[in-house]
Each structure stands twice: as C-alpha cells, then as structure tokens.
Amino acid sequence: MRQITRVGIAGTGLIGKGLAYEIEKQADMELTKVLTRRSLRTMQDYPFPDVLTNDVKEFIESCDLIVECSGDVIYGTEVIDKAMRASLPVITMNAELQVTTGSYFARRGFITEAEGDQPGCLAALHENVVNMGFKPLVYGNIKGFLKLDPTPDEMKYWSNRNGVRLDMTTSFTDGTKVQIEQALVANGIGAGIAVDGLLAPAADNLHEIGAELAAEAKKVKKAICEFVVAPKAPPGVFITAEHDPRQKDTLRYYKMGEGPYYTILQNYHLCHLEVVKTIKRVIKGEGVLLNNGENPTISVAAIAKRDLHPGEKIDKGIGSFQVRGEAVNISMNANHVPIGLLVNAVLKQPIAAGHVITFADVELPDSLAVRAWLEVVPQDIMLSK
C-alpha cells in the first residue's frame, strides 16, 4: 500500500499557492492544511478553501512535514518553533528566515531550504558537480538588474506590473534578496565571501567572469559566494570549478573550454515548481539539501540608504526604503543587526547613509527571532517591552 505523506504549507502568497497546486497532483502526498494569517472570509478565491486554517496548533497536528514560505522572519520563526516541538521536518522557501534564525533551528531539528529559489538550486548543482569530480570555487547567482536605492514610485510600478508585493520587489531590486541568498549558500555549503557586500561584477560572458571570480577565490583560499549583474544571461545559477588536470583534453572536447576554471550553468530556477523535489527528498530520508548551518560565519547587515534619525521607526527592514542588506563576515561585524530582525524597530541615535546599523542603534521588540539570533551570536542588547 502506498504511503501518503501529509504536507502542510505555511503561507498563501505566490509560492505557497503555486506549491499547493503541485502537491495536489502528487499521488504520494496529501495537502492537509494551509496556514494563513488572512481572514478566511476574504479567501474565497483560494483554490483549496477546505484546507485553510488560522490555527497553528491545528496546522501542526495535521501534518507529517511542513513547508514554510510565509516570507516573514518573525512569524515564520514562531511557526517553525512549534513544528520543531512536534518533531516535524521543516522545509523552507524563506532564505530571509534561514540567514536570521535558521542556525538556531539547525541545532534543534531537521530544517532544509528547498530547491526552486537560487540557494536550493545552487546546493543541488553543488551535489551534481562534486559527484562529477569538480572542485567548486565560485557559487554564482545571476541578477538581471540592480539599483541600490530605488524610488517608491519605481517600485510601486514594478510591483503592480508583476503582481509581487512592494517589499519583495524592492528587496529584489536593491540587492538585499541576492545578498541574503548568497549568505545562506555560504553558511550552508561552508564557503565564504571575498568582501563584505560581495564583489557583484557586471558581466555578459559568464565563463569569463566566472574565471575572474575563481581567481579571487584562490586569493582568499576558499570557495566564495557571489552574484553577477548580467542582463543578457538567463535567470539561473552557476558554479565555477576546477577539475583534475588529467581531464583537461576531455573537458575541452566536451566544450567546457581550456580550463583551468570551468563554469557549469543551470539556466533556470522555477521556485515553487521545484519544491516538490525537496519534499520527496525528505520523504526518502536523503537528508538536508541546504540550511544555514549550526555555526554561521556570514550574516546580512542592514545598511542605511539615507540619513536616519532618532525616533524613526523601521516597520520592516527587508524591502524598505530606509535600509538594504549586505552580506558580511560576522567576525568583523559582531554588533550588526541582521536585517531580518529589523521589524518594528525604533532608532535611538542618528545613522548616516551608508553606515551599518548595530544593536546599540535601535530598540527591538522582544521576539523568538531576536532571542534565537542571540543564542547563536551572543551579545548584550536592549529589547523594548
């Protein structure tokens, strides 16, 4: 008799809704509950209304594993905590959460990022190229555009045009999202970064820029996570790697170039359509694809986009017009506030444009997410009650 796995989804946005369609088609899965904070009366157009719930307890008790894709660090952390207490495996499509509280959960139970977004796709590509004998030097993410300080009018236009939330559109545009994604890959795979904020070169030829970045990795003597701004390149990921010199002639014959650096491109990432692969991986007991690791070395700091003033409130740092995120080495930025924690934060002192926001600069509401970060990277901070 076929074993049916009961799957729950936390989140009803673009990713959560799309994933629900895919799970409903699987013979070995049942979509049992979908957790949402929206009023159920306003969700009459949701394709599977019978599985919707606002009750976290009901959600957890109805599932064998959960997929967290709410896009919310603070709320998602609370949901995953309850899933961990029930010993449920957790799959996320929430890199923002992973780089903020993922290490706290990696110490407690099973949590993995899914294929679909670039971090999970890079992790899957990593497994593939390593199995073929390559030694990765660069884990590359491809962006078609970058504007560090876009205007609200610009972001409202693109948000409406693409049907994507304003904060998400802004975080994609100002680089926060890709910085978060590459920090997650670095922590999960055991790589590093060449510089805080990443090198982020512009390029049209991925093989040429991959070789240049591989040379940078050689300088720091460690594989690095990077992104390139390449408007003509496909929206995928790549790894630039070395191989056994004895394979040079064969790799040339296989159209991989002269070496010594070889770039392997995956020219797509299909978000929720690929999550099912990770669910099946977990069901088969094949282990973690990618998480933030138990002892992260890279975080994502909040950088002021403009001069900020005492008493100013940051409702949500990720996707705001006040701050953007940059990947940083934790050892060199011990007091930075991870941008994922900047929710309902109030500034205590002025911050000049371009400066990193530290715990001394803000009052943060108490939350499990804040406490989770402090358990992983301890320091004294002031929490507002």
Results as ranks from 00 to 15, higher is better:
330 I>M: 10
12 T>P: 02
248 K>P: 02
75 Y>F: 15
63 C>V: 15
298 I>D: 01
304 A>R: 03
158 W>I: 14
345 A>W: 01
328 V>S: 03
60 I>S: 02
83 A>H: 04
325 G>M: 00
288 V>D: 04
208 E>R: 12
20 A>W: 08
30 E>D: 13
354 G>P: 05
204 D>C: 10
312 E>I: 00
179 Q>D: 10
371 R>K: 13
275 V>F: 03
31 L>C: 06
358 T>C: 11
325 G>E: 03
237 V>K: 06
346 V>N: 03
56 V>L: 08
84 M>W: 00
380 D>A: 15
259 G>Y: 05
116 G>E: 02
19 L>Q: 06
13 G>Q: 04
360 A>W: 00
220 V>K: 00
84 M>S: 08
187 N>I: 07
75 Y>T: 13
19 L>P: 04
58 E>Q: 14
334 A>E: 13
88 L>A: 03
117 D>C: 07
178 V>Q: 06
266 Q>F: 09
104 Y>A: 06
330 I>E: 10
183 A>V: 02
144 G>Q: 11
11 G>A: 07
267 N>C: 11
133 G>L: 01
123 A>N: 07
134 F>Q: 07
133 G>W: 05
50 D>Q: 14
167 D>T: 12
110 F>W: 09
248 K>H: 07
170 T>C: 14
325 G>Q: 05
367 S>N: 05
63 C>G: 05
320 S>M: 06
